[in-house]
Design a protein around this nucleic acid. Structure first.
Lengths: 143, 143
DNA sequence: AACAAAGTGCTTATCGGTGAATATGAGCAT
DNA sequence: ATGCTCATATTCACCGATAAGCACTTTGTT
């Protein structure tokens, strides 16, 4: 189970340290693709297969579904962690997620998310997410 | 059953003594997450697994669900109690809960809560109406 | 062929986490 | 009250993870 929040920085070539605590779980090779809310998603190989399976079940007759599938599959790249614990994020993905220098990586159960630090802060600010809303959502979601 | 109120202090590296009376109940390894009202929650591994199972079932396509999962999982860290009875609180959680030096740990039945001492005092002096709501929500979570 | 751009790999310095040793204090028994 | 034991507080030293800089390789372009 991937959990936690980690701050790191891109080097001049667009490489990023994979937090030590996540490295074992996600594996040496993993998949990075465009994510929702302006971040990138990262899946271990197993979780990626799961995810692909889910995408396959979507009805291709539905335009929304086709768009959804294209979005995730076209953005996907395989990444490999080097001897120093870093991996390269493809140029188009860096651009999509507005990656500059300061990056936040979070673990979200079955995947990781890679955020521009400023965007992550804004996303987490009180106007967007408050603990009270979270508490309300808990009931709405029927948990 | 976790009960009681204990005052302790963070050391220079952000470590905290786990009160002796709680240590047996919560186990050597446990989970700390962002809590409500500016405190941190601590769960034994069993309690946490329950919670994880429920989070896994939430749909990726629903924004509320994403927010909710991100809040709890990105805010979660596994902590281990060392030979001297201390555990490290992750930097982002210390920041979230405004941890400085003086800390209060309370037992709340199935979880512990970790408070900045000053905030705990303020919280206790207020008649805090939302406490009932929170309690209700937590019940529905089955935590 | 020469060059630029992108990717890969190495080296060093620094910082945070970890463990050990010691000090302080509270509670208990004699 | 005195001394003992256990829990907590404080300090220091070490080690591994990360940041940053630089050099080399590969690829593609002119």
């Amino acid at each position: 189970m991937l959990i936690g929040e980690y701050e790191h920085s891109l080097d001049a070539k667009g490489r990023l340290i994979m937090p030590a605590k996540i490295r074992e779980d996600i594996g040496e090779k993993f998949i990075v693709t465009k994510g929702l809310d302006g971040c990138l998603f990262g899946f271990s190989q197993n979780e990626w297969l799961n995810f692909e399976e889910k995408l396959k079940t979507l009805p291709l007759t539905n335009k929304n579904a086709r768009d959804f599938v294209r979005f995730f599959l076209s953005g996907a790249t395989e990444c490999e962690i080097d001897k120093q614990g870093r991996f390269l994020i493809a140029g188009n993905l860096r651009e999509y997620a507005k990656m500059e220098k300061e990056i936040v990586i979070i673990g979200v159960g079955t995947r990781i998310e890679i955020w521009n630090k400023d965007k992550w802060k804004v996303y987490n600010s009180d106007e967007n997410i408050s603990a009270d809303e979270i508490a309300e959502n808990m009931t709405m979601l029927g948990i």
